[in-house]
Design a protein around this nucleic acid. Structure first.
Lengths: 195, 195
DNA sequence: AGATATGCTTTACACCATGTCAAGTAAAAA
DNA sequence: TTTTTACTTGACATGGTGTAAAGCATATCT
């Protein structure tokens, strides 16, 4: 099964990544990707069953390239629960801009494509788990503000750190990514911690 | 120009409102609206130049019906700045679910339709003004937390109160609308106020 | 009554991107 | 030399938006 990692397949993924970055996920057609990869539009379909599948494969491809697991592990090293929260916010704050193009492409077809919706939901569930663990640590350290349950605190942290919020604050409001990270840390702490 | 308020035109707007509500803005076609209104698809185009224009007109139609201005005025009556903040959060918390269907319909075409993007931007600018005023009052009362500027505080309040966040917390996370309102008040106060 | 304007219907079609199908080609592998 | 693999080419179905043109009632004006 060299088809799994054929040259053309990888070329398509690389090109898709580039084009999605360049256009921030907007208006990228199969024909564009094919042309850029120097192959026919139909050849793309020989490797990926649909546009959505291509995008989903591209996110996985990017995850490997960015070494997602290694980076997540860093945030897990914090022993103090409030540090863990801050590190998790920082991890996502640095991660989102790197995956924004392809994430946006998925977001844009969410409402018309069930496969995309499922893939996104999956991804967001993983992200939510990270939130839940961070919140859980706050709770067992006795520093979670009493008005929050584990669930509701997870909900709000997860929502605050969403891609659309990052998009709004940086792209729309003009915050630098460092500002985003710093301020989100403050908000997360003010919202979730006692006092 | 009775065309401005012709019976058919109003009928179309009413039907669009209904259908968008029922389907939460998803997958509503011109043909569906026409059928429901008991007219031909082309007749819809005699009153609205495009799908997007119809949706935009529907939001305005709904605003009038909901008497948006009157409701907003209520939140402006608070004299204490922190009350004003809470009332504004409450106003939006009660408003969003009523306009969600048609708002979502606009959101869904934002990225493919410039007219929709402009209309949405306009709407969000108005909402942002409300945030700005609330934040400004906090500042002149001397209770705005020192880490915020007027702009950045407006940005974050505006972002927190966004429709997608409401969507995520209520529809996805299962919060009741009252929970949404109560918790958002808490978060807004914890985030923006001193102490 | 007769002309005309209004508001809608019906049918047809251009457009645009996705995705499918079938036949052909060139080079590598058997 | 045959067969397989990977790709090309061109045609076409699909689905929804939006346009165009001709027809047909029902009101309105004179």
């Amino acid at each position: 099964m060299s088809s799994k990692n054929s040259n053309t397949r990888i070329k398509i993924l690389e090109v898709t990544l580039q084009v999605l970055e360049e256009h921030r996920g907007h208006g990228v057609r199969m024909a564009d990707i094919a042309k850029r990869a120097g192959i026919s539009r139909q050849a793309v379909y020989l490797h990926f069953a649909s546009r959505t599948e291509l995008f989903i494969a591209t996110t996985k491809f990017l995850d490997e390239r960015l070494d997602l697991e290694r980076r997540l592990a860093l945030s897990r090293e914090a022993s103090l629960s409030s540090d863990r929260l801050a590190l998790y916010v920082e991890f996502w704050g640095n991660y989102i801009p790197e995956v924004y193009g392809v994430a946006k492409a998925l977001l844009l077809v969410l409402d018309t494509d069930d496969a995309a919706a499922a893939a996104w939901k999956d991804r967001m569930a993983a992200m939510r788990d990270g939130c839940r663990v961070a919140v859980g640590l706050l709770y067992s350290d006795g520093v979670l503000a009493p008005e929050w349950t584990l669930d509701s605190a997870t909900d709000i942290l997860w929502t605050m750190l969403s891609v659309p919020n990052w998009e709004n604050l940086t792209i729309e409001c003009g915050w630098s990514n460092q500002q985003y990270i710093d301020r989100m840390k403050v908000i997360a702490e003010k919202t979730l911690l006692k006092n």
